[in-house]
Design a protein around this nucleic acid. Structure first.
Lengths: 116, 116
DNA sequence: TTATGTATTAAACATCTTGTATAATACAAA
DNA sequence: TTTGTATTATACAAGATGTTTAATACATAA
């Protein structure tokens, strides 16, 4: 019984947190969708996951808000990939967000990513 | 412009986190709705807020799930108040949740509340 | 050239949470 | 009896993510 509650709680808890993780990913350097997804899952120790569709949707929105931009890069196979990065506005937004909110990580691997 | 984005981001970011804060509050000891609200705002350094209606709604749901119960207590003025507390199932749920998820607080005032 | 695979964009629907508003109920105290 | 307060109940709005289904664009292989 506790398992179902736990799953439901976790699912809900993570809603709304993806933006934060995307910013965390892009602060490391520009990344394509696949790399962002990998970053999120790895950096969170597997506790955060996301669908690529959600990333595409978010990134397009962030583009319109002018907080991310991208460069198209050729890769070995298939069509070009878009490598996203934070604009100065995006950087400032993230900085302000972390200043104003309680940010929440107990795993050492994350804490050093939060250094501003 | 950054201000509006920040407000919108924060509003979304906090959705789904109230459950966590309610559990955090009740782990300190049984509390009525008003006290839970005060706890959340104080313990989060003002970064988390919530409406009492949302607490009532959540607590009723938690009751049905048998993760919280309450005792009615007489107070100096007005009708009795319900003082909620975690059931053993609720305690276990919280413990498991914190084990399984990256919990995210940089403010010292919160970190010691997370001690299990 | 044609067919195939992959990245990306798009739109719609479901589910869930919180904010907000509006009522209704229950009960203590003036 | 009237008033104030705690609680329950309902409904709607706003947002986010998961999921599904298509469509578009383009590189590469056959």
């Amino acid at each position: 019984m506790v398992e179902e509650l736990l799953d439901a709680w976790e699912e809900t808890y993570k809603k709304g947190q993806l933006t934060f993780w995307v910013f965390l990913a892009l602060r490391e350097g520009s990344k394509c969708v696949e790399e962002i997804k990998e970053f999120v899952e790895r950096a969170s120790g597997g506790t955060m996951t996301c669908e690529e569709q959600s990333l595409y949707r978010n990134l397009r929105k962030f583009q319109h808000l002018e907080i991310v931009e991208y460069d198209s890069k050729k890769v070995s196979k298939g069509p070009d990939r878009k490598y996203y990065y934070l604009t100065p506005t995006g950087e400032e937004l993230f900085r302000r967000f972390v200043e104003r909110n309680i940010m929440i990580f107990t795993k050492e691997s994350i804490i050093n990513l939060l250094t501003l």
